[in-house]
Nucleic acid binder design. Structure first.
Lengths: 196, 196
DNA sequence: CGCAGTTCATGCACCGAGTGCAAGTTGCAC
DNA sequence: GTGCAACTTGCACTCGGTGCATGAACTGCG
């Protein structure tokens, strides 16, 4: 992939957002299962096949990050100070990321409320995000792979646990409070056990 | 459900195990995606429709607990001493459960190795198990719902993180070592933060 | 401008997962 | 036995998802 020309890229992002917003609008109205891919492509004015060029599957249209998000989280990762403990970095990262994508967090929350059938699905934000986080964290700490994964996955669990407890009326600040409380509560720490 | 007659129940368990073992045998050979439901039912000698009477979907045949497991984990939960901290209870529970179902853990692990397409699927053991744990924990502690969920989900994360790191050659003892290390490392604790 | 190369959208045929329904079979209680 | 409930089965159908081949749109270049 040799950096596509800006026009193509712009169109792709436009189409992505068009399909995405059409899908989420329908899903907040009727729920995830009650909206078929054909409904989505009809509403978005594209072909069924094109839908699957943009999204690997139907769930992805809910959970995939915006095309611009990769740049966003890369920036957030880059601005973490060198010596900062991993757990603190992850907290700030999630605060920053959810803050910057607040509208989409709220949208996703609304879709979830309208779609109880999605309750088993654990990805509050996309897998690609966490893959990037995992890779970044791997190059920054002397932690062994097990503890590294434990830490990153614990952060993911904090977010995934906080989201269902979030009352959307409290706004993104309410979510941030829950995330903060979760990070304080879980807080993995190397061999700092209180009682054996 | 008014306690079914023993013959019916025995037959159901037999069929469950028949289908389950046929499915997992095929999947360890060819991988999850390369085995269709039709393959499974042909190997098990039942009808396609019956398969879906036993399993909600194809993934369930890998991850659903054995019919007897509910009794097993109920027993494990019952034998936790009254005053025991939740985190310790969860650790012992997972040690006990994975120990008692060691063969199936090893089988699942083999299926996963043969099926990279399952990597995104996060349920190392079934959802019903964790639902039962969550309910049990809820009646045992003064923790608020958020922290309760954080604790239970953290335990789940420990297991889900430990499993991919597990070298099956080390046997179930190797897995238990990883689980123990994970529980020591994560260890959610109410406001016991080391550094602000 | 015209041309070649690439990217992308689309239609089509197809596979496999999962469901609703209605009819048949099997164990159960009396 | 008879009647009832649980279970199995086949069938038709919907929907998610893919491979492929074709055509349109955008690209850089002379």
């Amino acid at each position: 992939m040799v950096v596509p020309s800006p026009v193509r890229e712009r169109k792709k992002r436009e189409t992505w957002r068009l399909v995405h917003s059409a899908a989420l609008r329908l899903m907040t109205e009727r729920g995830f299962d009650a909206v078929s891919v054909d409904d989505i492509v009809a509403a978005a004015g594209i072909s069924r096949r094109t839908f699957f060029n943009y999204f690997a599957d139907k769930e992805s249209v809910v959970f995939d990050p915006d095309p611009d998000d990769a740049a966003l989280w890369a920036a957030l990762l880059a601005e973490r100070p060198p010596g900062e403990p991993l757990w603190s970095s992850l907290r700030e990262l999630l605060i920053g990321y959810t803050g910057a994508t607040a509208e989409r967090m709220l949208l996703q929350r609304r879709v979830r409320l309208a779609s109880p059938e999605l309750s088993g699905c654990s990805r509050e934000v996309a897998d690609r995000f966490w893959a990037a986080v995992r890779e970044w964290a791997g190059g920054r700490t002397g932690l062994d792979p097990l503890r590294l994964d434990l830490t990153v996955n614990a952060a993911r669990t904090v977010l995934n646990t906080a989201c269902p407890h979030w009352d959307a009326d409290t706004g993104i600040a309410g979510l941030h409070e829950l995330i903060g409380a979760g990070f304080d509560f879980v807080h993995p720490s190397p061999s700092e056990r209180i009682s054996s």
